[in-house]
Simulated scan of single mutants.
Amino acid sequence: MNPALLVREAMATRLVTVPPYTSLTDVAACMRDADVGCVLVASGDTLHGVITDRDITVRITAEGLIAGAATAHQAASGSLVTVGPDASICEASALMCAHAVHRLPVVEEGRLIGLLSLSDIADTPHAQEILVALVCAHANH
């Protein structure tokens, strides 16, 4: 496997962000308009949370709350798992696996600079090797 393949080489840098006070109706419209299933809740380059389309369904709709009254901050995932840009793709994949997440915000010196998703990893030249390494590591635990 290529140990030099870094998160910064595969991450997306065109990010869809919303401020924490954004209504979930506006968040959903933002997802629709940008054709994404995830937005980052941020103030400037400071990350506060991540909202997926599933979060809106499970945290808001299923709990009987009204999306127009709820804010991005209320729906965002509570525990953030992030990765640095100089981590290897394999390290990032292991983080995703350990925390059962499909996306990792990329943070450098406290600043949001990117987003790494499973599809970004699948687009790397070593995706199959990374998957095999993860399966082997999981089998050894």
Rank of each mutant, 00 (worst) to 15 (best):
G78N: 00
A87Q: 07
A62L: 15
V107L: 10
I60K: 11
I51F: 00
C30E: 15
D120E: 06
H102K: 15
V83M: 11
V41M: 03
V135Q: 06
I60N: 13
A12F: 00
R32A: 10
I113D: 08
D35W: 07
G68D: 15
H102D: 13
V107E: 04
V83R: 04
V36L: 08
Q74E: 13
A139C: 13
A62K: 09
T13Q: 14
C136N: 12
A72K: 03
A67Q: 09
A69Y: 15
S119K: 08
T46G: 07
A139F: 14
P19R: 00
I56R: 11
A137F: 10
A69K: 14
A137M: 11
E108S: 13
A92P: 01
A72H: 05
Y21N: 11
H48W: 07
V39P: 03
D26I: 11
G78A: 05
T52M: 08
V18K: 04
S88M: 06
A10M: 04
L95F: 13
C90I: 14
V107G: 03
L104H: 08
G110Y: 13
S79Y: 10
D86M: 05
D26H: 15
A42P: 04
I130C: 10
S79K: 14
S88T: 15
D55N: 08
S88R: 08
A92N: 02
T71Y: 04
D53H: 09
G110P: 07
S117T: 12
S93M: 15
S43G: 09
L134S: 08
S43N: 12
L131K: 05
A29Y: 11
A76D: 00
D120P: 02
I89M: 05
P20E: 01
L24V: 12
Q74Y: 02
L65Y: 14
G37W: 06
H126M: 05
H99M: 06
A72P: 03
P85F: 04
L115F: 03
D45Y: 10
T57A: 15
T124E: 01
T124M: 02
A122V: 00
T25W: 11
C136R: 15
A34N: 10
H73W: 05
M1G: 12
L24Q: 10
T46C: 12
G49T: 00
N2W: 03
C30Y: 09
E109A: 13
A10Q: 02
N140T: 12
V135R: 08
M96H: 08
S23C: 06
P19W: 01
P3K: 02
A87M: 06
A10P: 01
G64D: 05
N2A: 04
T25H: 11
A67S: 12
T22M: 09
R32H: 10
E63W: 11
P19H: 00
M96W: 07
A76T: 01
